[in-house]
Design a protein around this nucleic acid. Structure first.
Lengths: 199, 199
DNA sequence: CGTTGTAAGCTTACGTCGTACACAAAATAG
DNA sequence: CTATTTTGTGTACGACGTAAGCTTACAACG
């Protein structure tokens, strides 16, 4: 399963995977500002400069973290559902990931997932629309709109106070479902109408 | 109109207002990373440390910029409209501000507007809902949902490529209106139904 | 006028950041 | 054993935010 042994040189103690995993740990535990090259190195028992053998710079570390977290969000989205169900399921799974990595939310907001990678990860969801006869263009519009809503909502929830009491949590959950429901309903209405181009 | 002369000491060349205005200029021209205390000072013909006489730290500068930009977005929202019209108008005005300060979008995303200040600036819009018999709770839900969608959408548009061709701009505009329309329509459906609590 | 008090701006300095560059260490191939 | 190759390290530089103390430029008072 692991094969970092490629032949000649000094054996690698670091791997891209190990670095990214450690980066997620540091991010969750200490926040985005604490995710420095030195801190990440020390977490791995290694000097900061060693990381540059595996990733070109800090931006690349952040991009890799974004990719890993988004992939974590969209595994097992389930199949055999109508597109409104699948779309809602995606929103819920995405939100669950964001709330379980609250310190990552500002990062996800500022470093969008690579667009092709995003389409790849969401192929199943988009297929649900296609099976229902929705055009790819409209499907992408709906999925992106919902994604953008979920991220924006998590930003608002997490950006304010880091920790919230139960009442506040209920409030945000209610609000989330209200906005999500409104949007999905709105798209469904449009689809039933035969999707006239937006005026 | 201006009264920086308060009596005793050395006359002030700096004002909080002047600093914030310069900060917006630097942000628009060179981006968030370039908005450093030294750069801001040099823009004003002043040493970096001089800024600390007027604002406690860099975070306060950023917060002041956020406040100023959001206030810029919501002046003149118009009156005498139904709440769906007013809500759509708010979304359009907010989006216009974001797209005319693209470098500020990540800042707005990470530094939410102060909640009380936000309610104050949006009092007129919320009144439109009240006049139509919508509960304050539902009004806040709808306004925040739309705000979150607009910001998230601008993040997606601006975060990808900094400059876009006409086709891409049309694509984003279409997408924006589709998602916004869906959401407003969804809330309207709910309101007509008498606003049952979200399941 | 000179002196004094006070607010505003300046200089210097410290610790931290990302990272360029040259080097040391640890393995395999011959 | 030696040469080769890959990985990790040490040092150093410039830029950042900002703490502390100093200087400057005014108004008020004598």
């Amino acid at each position: 399963m692991n094969a970092p042994r490629r032949g000649r040189g000094r054996p690698a103690v670091l791997t891209r995977e190990r670095i990214v995993a450690a980066a997620v740990d540091v991010l969750d535990a200490e926040g985005l500002d604490a995710l420095t090259m030195r801190r990440l190195g020390s977490r791995l028992g290694v000097a900061a400069m060693s990381l540059y053998r595996h990733l070109p710079n800090r931006e690349a570390v952040l991009a890799a973290v974004v990719d890993r977290l988004f992939a974590e969000a969209v595994v097992d989205l389930g199949t055999g559902m109508s597109w409104p169900e699948a779309l809602t399921g995606f929103a819920v799974a995405y939100r669950r990931m964001l709330l379980s990595h609250p310190q990552a939310v500002p990062l996800l907001a500022t470093h969008p997932v690579d667009i092709d990678r995003g389409r790849e990860l969401l192929a199943g969801l988009l297929g649900t629309f296609e099976a229902a006869g929705v055009t790819p263009h409209d499907a992408v519009t709906a999925v992106q709109s919902v994604g953008v809503y979920v991220l924006g909502h998590a930003l608002a929830q997490v950006g304010g106070n880091p920790s919230l009491d139960d009442a506040a949590l209920r409030f945000y959950d209610e609000w989330f479902e209200a906005g999500l429901g409104a949007m999905v309903r709105g798209f469904a209405v449009n689809a039933l109408r035969g999707t006239p181009p937006p005026a």
